[in-house]
Amino acid sequence: MSKGIDLKGSTRTISEFFEYSINSILYQRGIYPAEDFTTVKKYDLTLMRTHDDELKQYIRKILSQVHKWLLSGKCNKLVLCVVDRDEGDTVERWAFNVTHISKEPQESITEEVTPISQEETQKQIRALIRQITASVTFLPELENEGNYTFNVLAYTDADAIVPLEWSDSSSKEIEDGEMVEFRSFNTEMHKIGAQVSYKYQQ
């Protein structure tokens, strides 16, 4: 048991994963121009990460708050919505479900929680990020590139402490959208699942 990662470590892993996956999505979906991204080695993969300071700061600010929520176990979903700049419609919705394993013993059923090694987690993350990257192939093309922006939603417990920048929002679901479930990964304390829903176009 002891060789598994603790809550802090687990949260850090998750926050880090969020950062890379958000960056990947922004890059893959062309929300920001490719010139804004540089390659970094992570999870034994070559990932794209923005070097635009403003964007970096923006993502960091979001994730630092999410990190706090995760630490207190109050965040159970992070959603990245790709939003049409003009219409305000959500065209894609990337959701990451966070399940706190320790918190909800009834969900992890009766079986003993087997310690998950970091390597195992990394492997799972890699698989998940690969899937995200690969999803470009089936996602509908976003027309007029550069016309999209993104929103981040966090599903938190009602008693979470909420800083001023965050406010209640609708779930921004896509009506009549298609949904694709991705793999999930586990840390000792969390289980992260991912899915994308998108506007289905004929």
Partner: peptide, 21 residues
């Protein structure tokens, strides 16, 4: 359709404009 204790929060500040723009 959501848990009793859940809130959906949106990070309100607008995402930065892409450097291209």
């Amino acid at each position: 359709g959501f848990g009793a204790k859940q809130r959906i929060l949106q990070y309100m500040p607008k995402a930065p404009v892409s450097s291209l723009t």
